[in-house]
Structure formats: structure tokens, C-alpha cells
């Protein structure tokens, strides 16, 4: 059984460590916030100028001056801080944010990522994605292993315009957890019930399989 979006988020949450500052992108990455282990201190960064994102507000507490990078209304936790966009990206560029989780259209075996533009389709802009992938200390990509037509999204070479080069370290898909070694995808874990053969078939890029591949523990 391949994982659903929440399953992917749940597996990524296992990568969190106590004391981490984390930037979560829009989509599946946002769901990771729901699975932060009890008692673990993780501070969420929003690139529009908030460190310490809290849960979505109750209806009566909605505040137009308090949004996340997806322009959704949010709250802030005790110990939060606000700052301008230059300082916010300084936190990312300066390596102060421990982990960035974001989605992608494609990832290459060398760690290149395409996530912002599909030629011929409407281009809305890269937002902060290029800054995040070029400078973040550690990047995990959350995405489906294949597109709707079954084509692999883990490629030898990205076909879409790039967001960044040689930057992705780890990928969590509906089928597997993979490390990007620099010239290949190394299979680390399988989704519950998914076989190595299925993962091989769904991966176009070079896949390294060493020994027994364990099932994810989620």
C-alpha cells in the first residue's frame, strides 16, 4: 500500500529533532506540523516574517495581519518573533534554519529540483523556493513517486525548468524514502507493503539498492 499525503507527512516528521527550526512548504509539507512528536520542541519558520507559527486560529481570532507564506491566517506561539523579509531570508541563507521541507515536480539523481514552472502552463513565480533550495542546510522533498500518468518523478535529469541544482538530500514519496548521494538515489526504506520491484519500476534515475530494504515504521 502506497502512503497517502498524511502518511508522507508522518514519515517526514520522524526526521525532526528537538530544538529544530523548520520551514515547511505549501501542500504535503504543511501537514508535517500535525505530526511533531509530543514533547519535542520544533519551531516553525514562515518566510513572510514569523518564527513560531501556531495552529490555525479559531474563527473569532482571525487576524489579517497574521498570515503564513501561503497567505493563510495563522496564530503564533509563546516565544514567537516577527521580522521583515530580508531578515527572514537571512535566517535561511545564513544556515540558521535546520530543515526545509518542500514539494517538487521532479528531482534528479544529482539532487537538482524542478518545482516552480511548467512550460506552456501558467507561471505564478518561484516565491521563496529558489532561495530555500539554494541555501537551506538540509532539504527534504515530499512528493508522489510518479505523476498522474505513472511517469517517474525521480529522474536522471530534470526535464522542467530548475529551481535549484545539487541541493536535495532526501526524498520521501508515497512509495519510499531515498537519499540523494550525488549521482544516484539510494533506497533507504519502503512504504508498508510496497516491494523493491515496484519502487524500481517507478524510478527512472539510477537506484542503489543495498541489502535488505526495511519497511517504514509508521
Amino acid at each position: 500500500m502506497s502512503l497517502d499525503k498524511n502518511g508522507i507527512a508522518k514519515r517526514i516528521a520522524q526526521e525532526l529533532q528537538d530544538g529544530y527550526y523548520v520551514n515547511l512548504g505549501i501542500g504535503i509539507p504543511t501537514l508535517v506540523a500535525n505530526y511533531i512528536p509530543e514533547g519535542m520542541e520544533v519551531t516553525l519558520h514562515s518566510e513572510n516574517g514569523l518564527l513560531g507559527i501556531g495552529p490555525f486560529p479559531k474563527k473569532e481570532n482571525v487576524d489579517a495581519d497574521l498570515i503564513n507564506a501561503g497567505k493563510q491566517t495563522v496564530t503564533y506561539i509563546d516565544g514567537a518573533s516577527f521580522f521583515d523579509s530580508a531578515e527572514s531570508f537571512g535566517m535561511i541563507r545564513g544556515g540558521h534554519v535546520d530543515l526545509t521541507v518542500l514539494g517538487a515536480f521532479e528531482v534528479s539523481e544529482t539532487g537538482d529540483i524542478s518545482s516552480w514552472k511548467v512550460p506552456g502552463k501558467l507561471v505564478k513565480g518561484m516565491g521563496g523556493a529558489m532561495d530555500l533550495v539554494a541555501a537551506a542546510k538540509n532539504i527534504i522533498v515530499a512528493m508522489q513517486h510518479t505523476d498522474r500518468d505513472g511517469n517517474s518523478k525521480l529522474l536522471k535529469k530534470c526535464t522542467l525548468p530548475l529551481t535549484g541544482v545539487k541541493c536535495v538530500k532526501k526524498i520521501v514519496t508515497d512509495l519510499a524514502v531515498l537519499e540523494v548521494t550525488g549521482d544516484a538515489f539510494k533506497l533507504l526504506e519502503r512504504a508498508p507493503g510496497v516491494t523493491v520491484e515496484e519502487i524500481k519500476k517507478a524510478t527512472e534515475g539510477t537506484l542503489i539498492i543495498e541489502g535488505e530494504i526495511p519497511e517504514m515504521n509508521i
Partner: peptide, 13 residues
């Protein structure tokens, strides 16, 4: 002209 957000912020700063 599309500019990465952090680059845009820093160019202004």
C-alpha cells in the same frame, strides 16, 4: 520580471 523572494528582499535592503 520574476525574482526569487529572498533575492528581491535583499536587493531592496
Amino acid at each position: 520580471e520574476l525574482i526569487p523572494q529572498g533575492t528581491l528582499a535583499e536587493r531592496i535592503r
